Amino acid sequence: MTSGSADEPIYATEGLVDVLLERAAGRAPEKETVSLSVTPAGELPDLDFPPETPVFTHFYLPTAGGSVSAVFGVDLGTPPGQTAGRFVSHPDGRFEPTQTDDFHVSLFVAVPPWTRDSIAVFDRDSTQRELALLDVEPPEDALES
């Protein structure tokens, strides 16, 4: 799924953003990097969006598959082709993508004080996009589909 045109917002659930901000605060002063996945809006309750609209709903724990990754250099914790975005924290306060960030179609960047006002989303060209938070809960089996 793509992030759409630059005029369209990037949608994410409030719950996902809150968990990402908590993880970033807990890891500071170290950086946090997390792969993010989307759920089509048609699979989410009470949304009046086109059904194919991507909504960021889940993340993959960076430690999953860690022992195999350490030995073979292959990231087995994240299913291939299933991440449409990446979250990175910048404890140094730099509120923009950096050259060391692992770019995806959408890159979420958060800085202290780790509030909803201190997170932004950028596209592959490092252009900031509108982040629209949705108060919806994804279905529990969303990752299995």
Score class of each variant (00 low, 15 high):
13 T>N: 02
127 T>N: 04
32 E>R: 15
142 A>T: 07
82 Q>F: 11
47 L>W: 14
50 P>G: 08
83 T>H: 14
29 P>S: 01
78 T>F: 05
51 P>R: 09
65 G>K: 07
97 P>Y: 04
43 E>N: 09
100 T>Y: 00
98 T>A: 13
33 T>M: 14
87 F>R: 06
138 P>T: 03
128 Q>F: 00
143 L>R: 15
85 G>P: 12
44 L>Q: 05
57 T>R: 00
77 G>L: 12
54 P>Q: 13
94 R>Q: 13
58 H>C: 03
116 R>E: 07
18 D>A: 15
1 M>N: 13
134 L>E: 10
127 T>F: 02
82 Q>V: 04
58 H>P: 12
8 E>L: 07
15 G>F: 06
105 V>D: 05
20 L>N: 08
92 D>A: 11
95 F>Q: 10
114 W>L: 01
65 G>P: 07
94 R>T: 07
26 G>P: 07
53 T>K: 05
141 D>K: 06
17 V>A: 12
143 L>A: 15
4 G>I: 00
55 V>P: 01
78 T>V: 15
78 T>R: 05
50 P>L: 03
94 R>F: 13
101 D>E: 01
89 S>F: 10
23 R>G: 02
128 Q>R: 05
116 R>D: 04
137 E>T: 15
60 Y>I: 03
89 S>T: 14
20 L>W: 01
73 G>V: 06
53 T>I: 01
62 P>K: 01
5 S>H: 13
74 V>C: 08
49 F>M: 07
24 A>K: 08
16 L>V: 02
84 A>H: 06
121 V>P: 07
21 L>G: 12
136 V>E: 08
138 P>F: 09
142 A>V: 13
46 D>P: 00
70 A>P: 01
5 S>T: 15
86 R>A: 11
111 V>H: 03
52 E>L: 02
17 V>Y: 07
14 E>L: 12
